[in-house]
Write a protein that binds this DNA or RNA. Structure first.
Lengths: 116, 116
DNA sequence: TGGCTAATTAGCTAATCGGCAGAATAGCAG
DNA sequence: CTGCTATTCTGCCGATTAGCTAATTAGCCA
């Protein structure tokens, strides 16, 4: 249970239910009940997931009467993105002494890319 | 513990020791002993971390005599990056004409955040 | 006030995790 | 074969987690 912010964020994202909650909240504010409905989970369970997301700074909850609508807060995702950038070239396979060769390939690939 | 690939990857990244191992391995192959040395961890502990990273597909280990040098495999990081892209516009906060209004909301929310 | 609804907290269980020590495995060198 | 080294496997421990039920808080309405 590391306490550094990045670890807390990654841990919060390491659960498909919580990622689905994020996806739902990204489309607009939602109450806890609305979030619980698509999953067959009880309210306290969803509430606990929200607590994890809240501690990671990924959602905030407001107050409207007895509802606590949830909103997405994407700032921690930027931290994840920044951390990832460091490894981008590793999966983009455009490294090293092969640049010239790859550059040639690249111009050829650009035709393919534009298909998409 | 969810078994879907993205969750496994996020879980593997949710530990500063494992992220440090990744950073080290990104600079070149390393044996388990070399990886263990900077952290004051025993070999079996590092071996266990490596197992987690291996199951996430983030490292592979080869064979050279009695050493099992570790290499970075960045492909799962691309999956993380692709997942993140969906939210990029949310943290780039330069959307539409609402910038000033959102900025004002943000300062108001910061009070709510401090409620804990 | 009392009743209703939404959400959280408290407490439980089974499973998992990060650390360790000790034993087992794999590959070299005499 | 006998050691020697690097690594993994097997248990163990204390802490944490996801799920549940039951109890509690918070806000509305009559």
């Amino acid at each position: 249970m590391p306490t550094d912010q990045l670890s807390v964020t990654f841990a919060a994202l390491a659960d498909p239910t919580r990622r689905a909650i994020l996806a739902r909240v990204a489309e607009g504010e939602a109450t806890v009940m609305q979030l619980a409905e698509p999953f067959h989970l009880k309210l306290p369970t969803v509430s606990k997931h929200l607590k994890v997301l809240r501690q990671a700074g990924l959602v905030t909850q407001g107050r409207q009467a007895q509802w606590r609508p949830c909103r997405l807060e994407a700032a921690p995702l930027k931290d994840v993105s920044d951390w990832l950038e460091r490894y981008r070239e590793r999966w983009e396979e455009r490294i090293g002494q092969l640049d010239d060769y790859l550059q040639e390939l690249k111009t050829r690939e650009e035709k393919h890319d534009s298909e998409k």
